[in-house]
Design a protein around this nucleic acid. Structure first.
Lengths: 109, 109
DNA sequence: ATAATCAATCGTAATATTACGATGTAATGG
DNA sequence: CCATTACATCGTAATATTACGATTGATTAT
C-alpha cells in the first residue's frame, strides 16, 4: 500500500490536505517567507540564502507551483517567482473556515 | 538522503511545517471534522464512518496526538478523543499570522 | 477467572518524499 | 556561433508515509 485513498474523502477534505501538504516542509515555508518579504524572488537567490542545493530548491518551487500557491515568469535568463494573490486569498479563506469550524466547549475529555 | 534538514531552518518554520504536516492528509482532516461535529469522538466510531481499517485510523490519531492537536482519554473500554482547545487556539494564531504576513501588491510577476 | 471488546502496536508491502550530483535546455553576451 | 548563466529535469539513494492484517494489552461483562 502506501497510497492515500483520496476517493473515499470529500473534495473539500482532499483540497485542504493538498494545500496543507504543500506547506508541510520548513524549506517551503522559508521559500514563501522569502518571497513575501522580497515581494518577488529569483530562484538563484533562494539557493544562496537557504542552505540547499539548486536542484532541491527547484523541486520545492515546483511543488509550491503545482499546488497553485506561487507562479513563476521568465525574466530574461532567470525566473521570477511570486505569490499568486488569488490563490493565497482562497487558501486563507479555506484555512480560516476550517480553523473556525471548531468552537471550544467546556465539556471536553 | 530523504531526510529533511530541519537544523537549517528556524524554530518557527519547523513548527509551522509540523502543524501543516499533521493536517496534510484527507483522513486526518476527516477525523478532525468528525471530532469537531461530535465534540468528542470514540475511535471505534471513526472506523465505521471513514472507510479505513482500525489500524490505519489509530495511526492517524497517533499523528494528530503527537502534533498536540488532539488529546485522548480512556473511557472504560474505549478511548475518547477531542480537540486540545489551547493547541487549536495557538495553531489558529500561527496560521493566521503566517497567512496575514502576505499582503497582495500591484507589482507582481 | 474467562470471554468479549476496543484500541494500540507490530510487521510488512507499496509508494512518496527529500536531497543532491549530473545533465539538459533556454536565454543572454561576446 | 560559442560560451555563459539560470533554471529545470533526470537518476538515484536514503528515508518517510500509508494502509492493513495480525497480535497484544487493557478494561468491562459474565
Amino acid at each position: 500500500m502506501g497510497i492515500s485513498k483520496t476517493e473515499i474523502f470529500t473534495d473539500e477534505q482532499n483540497r485542504l490536505a493538498v494545500l496543507f501538504k504543500a506547506l508541510a516542509h520548513p524549506a517551503r515555508i522559508a521559500i514563501l517567507q522569502r518571497i513575501i518579504i522580497a515581494n518577488t524572488c529569483i530562484c538563484g537567490d533562494l539557493v544562496g540564502e537557504l542552505g540547499l542545493a539548486q536542484a532541491t530548491i527547484s523541486q520545492h518551487l515546483k511543488e509550491l507551483k503545482s499546488a497553485g500557491i506561487i507562479q513563476g515568469t521568465i525574466e530574461g535568463v532567470s525566473v521570477c517567482y511570486c505569490i499568486d494573490p488569488e490563490a493565497w486569498k482562497l487558501m486563507e479563506r479555506y484555512f480560516s473556515e476550517f480553523m473556525a469550524s471548531y468552537k471550544p466547549t467546556p465539556s471536553c475529555c
